[in-house]
């Protein structure tokens, strides 16, 4: 029998190993993207819940922008008009604020959305126990698993929040047009509208990442042997 054993015989120590095991960002993005695409329906449900929550947030914020645009350009008449329409107009500071009720509803909707995301991501992690175990057997580090899950969540977050912010903006414009006519569009402070949409997108991404944090940590910390056993 000709059995020639070859290869390096010593384990590199410390620093050398961190460099020895790597997963390029491009590859992590590719893996995350593929995982999302394979579970398209599931990930679309997560994205859907984000779209709903973020669009509601964007709707409320842009509504405020519309109102403050009217308030600033329409004079005293406008203040009366807005109060009639149900806005909290503060005559002293000359500003419009969310009503307490609105604030609560927004917070609740975001909370419900986060719980939904945690739920969906926990399912996704459970479903992928053995996949995670295999990756670990092949030499993946905890940080790589964490990174893949965070990237997935970031992609879902960007998509959901982007669509949501856009939808919220469009609906609030339509609502403004119906309520105040062309006045609302004419005096629209575009700068603050963009800022509002930015806040909505950031909030959406933040929620998505927050929701995946616990499931992803769970996945990353799992010992490969447990992960492999899960399916038996």
């Amino acid at each position: 029998m000709s059995k020639n054993f070859s290869g390096t015989r010593s384990v590199p120590q410390g620093e050398a190993i961190q460099r020895a095991i790597s997963l390029p960002w491009a590859k992590s993005v590719e893996i995350s993207y593929k995982s999302l695409r394979v579970r398209l329906f599931r990930s679309m449900i997560t994205v859907g819940s984000l779209v709903l929550a973020v669009s509601f947030l964007a709707f409320v914020l842009v509504n405020l922008d519309v109102a403050s645009g009217i308030l600033h350009h329409g004079g005293d008449n406008a203040a009366a008009l807005l109060t009639l329409a149900g806005y909290d107009v503060d005559p002293a500071t000359h500003g419009v604020a969310m009503t307490a009720k609105e604030r609560w509803i927004v917070i609740l909707s975001l909370l419900v959305c986060t719980v939904g995301i945690v739920n969906a991501q926990l399912m996704s992690v459970t479903e992928r126990f053995s996949e995670i175990g295999v990756m670990k057997c092949l030499g993946a580090l905890d940080s790589m698993i964490l990174r893949i899950f965070l990237l997935e969540a970031a992609m879902q977050g960007l998509l959901g929040a982007g669509i949501g912010a856009l939808a919220g903006f469009i609906f609030s414009l339509l609502a403004g047009l119906v309520r105040f006519g062309t006045l609302s569009v004419a005096y629209l402070p575009w700068g603050s509208v963009l800022a509002s949409m930015g806040i909505a997108v950031l909030a959406g991404c933040g929620l998505s990442l927050l929701g995946v944090l616990y499931p992803a940590l769970l996945a990353a910390r799992m010992r490969p042997i447990k992960a492999l056993r899960a399916e038996h």
């Binding site: 384990v11 590199p12 120590q13 190993i17 961190q18 020895a20 095991i21 893996i31 593929k34 995982s35 394979v38 053995s130 996949e131 175990g133 295999v134 990756m135 670990k136 057997c137 092949l138 030499g139 993946a140 580090l141 905890d142 490969p224 492999l228 399916e231 038996h232």
Partner: peptide, 26 residues
């Protein structure tokens, strides 16, 4: 430690499982 174990699994050991355990999305 964790890094060194990952290195060991990556370079020194190849695993074959009863249930194949290929990654289904790839």
């Amino acid at each position: 430690d964790a890094y060194e174990l990952a290195w060991l699994r990556n370079r020194k050991i190849g695993y074959i499982f009863q249930t194949f355990n290929l990654i289904p999305v790839m």
